[in-house]
Design a protein around this nucleic acid. Structure first.
Length: 489
RNA sequence: CGGGGUGUAGCGCAGCCCGGUUAGCGCGCGUCGUUCGGGACGACGAGGCCGGAGGUUCGAAUCCUCUCACCCCGACCA
């Protein structure tokens, strides 16, 4: 892995950006830090949304929608929360424009809002303000709500999908009668994210908890899934926060227990964003462009006819149409690309850029032989195949590609994960990228020092039950278990 | 907010130092023809207030002043 990575490392950002553009997923907007998600990119996101939404529904959650604007006073109610987000909030101060002879259209100074509105960077505050009115009794609990929305965080520097000023996400906000139930919800949603990442995105992830310094602003515990990208950097792919009673207290959300006592409810919030698109792109792509797991590919099979004229095209269409019908009947999305303004070679390259898992080419030669030429995107292998039972073979092939991508990504992560025991060794190894498993004394001081000196952060304290005690690589003090260090996006 | 850089056709750039024909090139775009099993080729064509304002000069993309915008490196971050 190391070789493969260092090749790309220096201009990985450029490589990534070019790839997003070539694959026609998204582009930078003229609006500062914002992104235009193009149809191909959005189609992938929609597939993710649908899959996740089904998983949320299956675990008892329902969708709702809350306002984009948050009164400043709401945001301020939870001290840690506002402190964490204050530096990156877009603020609405006026509600009207007026025309001005000299400057065209200007903000009407008369129309200043009495209380500024914050464009939501996340929705805990506005949601908990509503929950106060919804939760009165233990009979109202648990409250399990998800929202699909956009949020705005005024980031200094942005990168397509990975960090944009506005991004799309889902945020779940739940309320529970007991701490145990809330923690259980956090863990179960983390599990949903982890299995979604592996089964759909074909990205293996490590489940863990964040250290205090990496924790969500306002949370008592932050659970996360962490993935390793091809350039050796880590990416936080999803989070699930145990909010304790912090928001219930800040917003006076009390319920009556069976014993007729008043208690604050326990809260969780959890989310994944369009950043998953970035994870998807960085995990599987190669130098020929995007590589999509079949389950998320808007077009799973592209069929390219090779015809010199309209008659040949008609013949090819007749030749393949039974197979196309069989594929479609199996729920496989197929595109028969008869655009005659593009040449076959152009289309081959284009479908590769866009990550289409399976491509089929059919020309006169195939019609004579009863064959097609089939190319798979993950391995770039091409083979001539008989038409017999082709639809079944393709169905299995799509599954095989899905599995292969996960295995490849897993192998990459395993190759990039190693244990280090001394800080000297750590400093050398961190330059090569990857996940470094090392002992840590549990203090914020040590964590900050490592970050300062090596740019590596503790990605998470893994949840796996394989804790072996040792001594901190920096201070030599006792450590309960190895944690995962990496440089991160 | 610090430190660097760039603004010339839809995109990517050259020209600027050393002022002087009608401002170029590649990609893309349009028409026609030949092509079509891995991003075809030829011919013709369309497209520019050279980021903006002021100045110097007979003459400014080019020199000077101011201004605006964007990009990169830091601080911040899902």
């Amino acid at each position: 892995m190391a070789d493969q990575l260092t090749k790309r490392d220096e201009d990985y950002a450029q490589w990534y950006n070019d790839l997003v553009l070539k694959a026609d997923l998204a582009e930078h907007s003229d609006v500062r830090g914002c992104m235009v998600i193009k149809p191909h990119g959005y189609a992938i996101w929609e597939k993710m949304q649908r899959a996740l939404d089904d998983m949320f529904k299956a675990t008892g959650h329902v969708n709702a929608y809350f306002p984009l604007f948050i009164p400043k006073s709401y945001l301020a109610k939870e001290a840690n929360h506002v402190e964490g987000f204050a530096k990156e909030c877009a603020v609405v101060t006026h509600y009207r424009l007026k025309s001005d002879p000299e400057h065209g259209v200007v903000v009407d100074p008369e129309a200043r809002l009495e209380e500024e509105l914050i464009v939501r960077p996340t929705s805990e505050t506005i949601i908990w303000n509503s929950y106060r009115g919804w939760i009165k009794s233990y009979r109202d609990l648990p409250l399990l709500i998800n929202q699909w929305a956009n949020v705005v965080r005024w980031e200094m520097r942005t990168r397509l999908f990975l960090r944009t000023a506005e991004f799309l996400w889902q945020e779940g906000h739940t309320a529970h009668a007991t701490k145990g139930e809330a923690v259980e919800e956090d863990e179960s949603m983390l599990e949903v994210y982890a299995s979604f990442a592996e089964e759909w995105l074909a990205i293996p992830v490590i489940k863990g908890i964040k250290t205090a310094s990496e924790r969500f602003a306002g949370a008592e515990e932050t659970y996360c899934i962490e993935a390793l990208m091809q350039d050796g950097k880590a990416l936080q792919a999803g989070t699930s926060h145990f909010l304790g009673q912090n928001f219930a207290k800040a917003f006076d959300v009390l319920f009556t227990t069976k014993e007729n006592k008043q208690e604050h409810v326990w809260a969780t919030s959890w989310g994944v964003s369009t950043r998953l698109m970035g994870a998807l792109i960085m995990t599987h792509s190669d130098d020929n462009g995007l590589v999509l797991p079949p389950k998320l590919a808007p077009i799973q099979v592209a069929v390219v006819p090779i015809a010199k004229n309209a008659e040949q095209l008609d013949a090819i269409r007749a030749y393949v149409s039974p197979m196309l019908q069989t594929l479609r009947a199996k729920g496989i999305s197929v595109k028969f690309d008869e655009d005659d303004t593009k040449k076959p070679g152009w289309k081959f390259a284009e479908y590769e850029f866009k990550g289409c898992p399976v491509r089929i080419a059919i020309g006169p030669r195939d019609m004579e032989n009863g064959t097609v030429e089939l190319a798979r995107r993950d391995t770039l292998e091409k083979q001539v195949m008989q038409m017999t039972d082709l639809a079944e073979k393709i169905e299995h092939l799509l599954q095989a590609i899905q599995d292969n991508l996960l295995q490849k990504a897993l192998a990459m992560r395993e190759a990039g994960t190693r244990a280090v025991d001394t800080y000297e060794e750590f400093k050398v190894e961190i330059e090569k990228g990857g996940f470094l498993l090392a002992h840590w004394d549990g203090t914020a001081e040590t964590e900050a020092r490592v970050k300062e000196e090596t740019k590596a952060t503790i990605r998470c304290i893994p949840l796996q039950e394989d804790a072996v005690p040792g001594n901190c690589m920096v201070t030599g003090n006792p450590s309960a278990r190895r944690v995962i260090f990496a440089r991160a996006y």
